[in-house]
């Protein structure tokens, strides 16, 4: 039986899992919506991995994404890494001489600068989510096209309209205005892509030196309109890797492999059928009123987090 490495990326919008025996050959890749329920998403993802591969022996598990703490406790992960590192590792595996990674996901966007294979600088969006996947989703839904059609439609544009990209709310009112003026849908979509790229370069890029090769990854990289807008704005042909939407999970699995473990602390595929639950309560210990999260398997408390003083999180051995 093959020994596989698992990578799990629990993001705000999507939960992705990948499995490989050697990183050159991806055995399984699962892309799921999180729908605000990371526990169910992880279980569903693992179920699909089992369906695809059978109950393979797991040599290592890496987790990343904003839900990494929960995923780590739940699965018994060997490596828990932040998204920036995971994405950088994945990108430099796919394109070894990569100097810039543009990653745009559901709720956040990142820019990672690498030189000679080492991360030298990075940035994440801070105050604005205008350029991220959720906003594109929302606009596609408003116009009544599927997100899959968005890119191809934008590519047909002859004369992209100018849309203010500083703020999602203003971008939307600008779009509506242009629509009512009678501009074609293609031109508006392409204009929106250009606005979002400008927003990204101003808010996240902020004067950082963007050099080729540029790898563009994350769910939004599926949008051909966004790729074209980046190509034009940077004057560089961006590279979209084949696994663009699961690069975080891929990076996490690579890190698990790099850790060269004797044996994995993975808690087994049985956890698909176990009952996990989480609930929160406000600690009344002081005026901080920390929102403590309690994570349980059946009746047993696996972990608590969210307290500032450590009163609860130290109470359970993790």
């Amino acid at each position: 039986m093959k020994k596989i490495y698992l990578g799990i990326d629990v993001g705000s919008v999507s939960t992705n899992l990948i499995a490989f025996a050697s990183p050159e050959e991806m055995l399984a890749s699962v892309y799921l919506r999180t729908y605000g329920q990371p526990i169910q998403a992880i279980q569903e993802g693992l179920k699909q991995i089992v369906t695809l591969l059978g109950k393979a022996e797991v040599a290592g598990v890496g987790v990343t994404g904003s839900g990494r703490a929960l995923a780590a406790v739940m699965t018994g992960a060997d490596v828990v890494k932040n998204e920036i590192t995971a994405h950088a590792v994945a990108a430099s595996f796919v394109v070894p001489d990569v100097q810039t990674v543009v990653e745009i996901g559901g709720q956040d966007s990142k820019l990672i600068i690498l030189r000679q294979g080492v991360v030298t600088d990075f940035a994440m969006n801070t105050v604005c989510a205008a350029g991220t996947g959720s906003f594109l989703d929302q606009q596609a839904a408003r116009i009544g096209i599927s997100i899959e059609e968005f890119g191809p439609q934008a590519l047909k544009a002859k004369n992209p309209v100018r849309i203010a990209g500083r703020c999602a709310v203003f971008a939307e009112s600008d779009m509506i205005h242009k629509q009512q003026q009678g501009h074609s849908l293609e031109d508006i979509l392409a204009g929106l892509c250009e606005a979002l790229v400008r927003n990204y370069l101003n808010n996240v890029g902020k004067g950082k030196e963007i050099l080729a090769p540029v790898v563009f990854q994350g769910g939004v990289a599926a949008n051909a309109g966004m790729c074209q807008a980046f190509n034009r704005a940077l004057n560089i042909e961006v590279i979209v890797p084949k696994q663009y939407n699961v690069m975080g999970a891929f990076g996490a699995a690579l890190l698990a492999r790099e850790a060269k473990l004797e044996s994995s602390s993975f808690r087994g595929f049985e956890l698909i059928d176990r009952h996990f639950s989480s609930n929160g309560f406000d600690c009344q210990g002081c005026a901080n009123r920390c929102e403590v999260v309690e994570f349980r398997e059946g009746e047993r408390v696996l972990a608590r987090w969210g307290d500032r003083c450590g009163k609860w999180s130290n109470a359970v051995a993790v």
Binding site: S66, I84, M124
Partner: peptide, 18 residues
Amino acid sequence: EAGLQTRLEAFFDMLQWQ
């Protein structure tokens, strides 16, 4: 606090890598 923690961890990884 998640945003801060992620940035700190990423900064840590980057420095250690360098």
